[in-house]
Design a protein around this nucleic acid. Structure first.
Lengths: 148, 148
DNA sequence: TCTAAATAATTAATATATTAATGATATTGT
DNA sequence: ACAATATCATTAATATATTAATTATTTAGA
């Protein structure tokens, strides 16, 4: 009974849901020699010309120390580049190279299709209510962050 | 706009929600010198006398190769022990030691309080609907797993 | 202006995740 | 009984997460 509760707790349900949905997306990126996190970084850079490493961390939800290594590896694959800011020399901007940009039309259609297929396998109301609930719960964390 | 979509996608909402809720639980386990995953293993062992490593992996949602190292470390802390099965000598059972069992009354009240506090900060309906939605979505993965 | 505090990226150390392979034991079909 | 296959735990190699410390630079304040 107690274990049943643990198994149905919010954290475990979140982990279980990720285990259920992520393999299909990971597989797409893996087909291009990329990890899930490397793919997240590219997805953001496909939409933004350049972006400070710190903001890239916030948008991808990748912790900054991890992101340093991820950008290192993407950089050695020549998919992204670093550029130190002139305004504030502490800041490093990250941007996609031409080679990195060229991947978007290869990858995104498959991602979009997988996402549509996933969404379609759940009734629309459950889907929306789940996302709305997550929105409310995650807002707690954002508020907490602003207060420390 | 496209980046907005990415940011509000189910996977990113799941990660964002975990980022919002897990730090408070992690902090409790850290206070006892434990990681989140080590805490997950102990929580299951507090409810079951002994359990095969593979089933422990399923219940904790920890991948088996990771679990091997986690049990190694818990074992060297003398919080759990391994016992090879007689029935099937491929199977290893894991169980909590007395020292491991003694942690339950120290840790669980704080976990329960943190969970109650979290749940209380969201309206009950949103909470329930979110969990029901997650239940449906995660069921997809279970089904997929049974088919390969 | 000069120093103390704050910020951005990085490094470091340890733990965990991912994917593939391996070794030992069980099971199945013949 | 035997060979092929399957299963369980483990190892291996690489990538990422977590937490704390460090370096370079900027900002705030005396």
């Amino acid at each position: 009974m107690a274990i049943q509760q643990f198994s149905r707790s919010l954290p475990m349900m979140l982990y279980r849901t990720l285990d259920a949905v992520m393999p299909r997306f990971r597989k797409i990126f893996n087909d291009f020699g990329l990890t899930e996190q490397q793919g997240r970084v590219l997805r953001v850079l496909w939409e933004r010309d350049q972006i400070a490493l710190g903001e890239l961390a916030r948008l991808t939800l990748i912790p900054t120390p991890s992101l340093v290594g991820i950008v290192d590896r993407l950089s050695s694959m020549e998919l992204v580049a670093r550029q130190r800011s002139d305004r504030d020399r502490r800041v490093v901007h990250v941007l996609a190279t031409d080679k990195g940009l060229a991947l978007e039309p290869e990858i995104m259609p498959r991602v979009a299709a997988a996402y549509a297929n996933l969404k379609q396998s759940i009734d629309a109301e459950s889907w929306d209510l789940a996302l709305q609930g997550l929105q409310k719960i995650s807002a707690l964390g954002e508020a907490a962050k602003r207060n420390d």
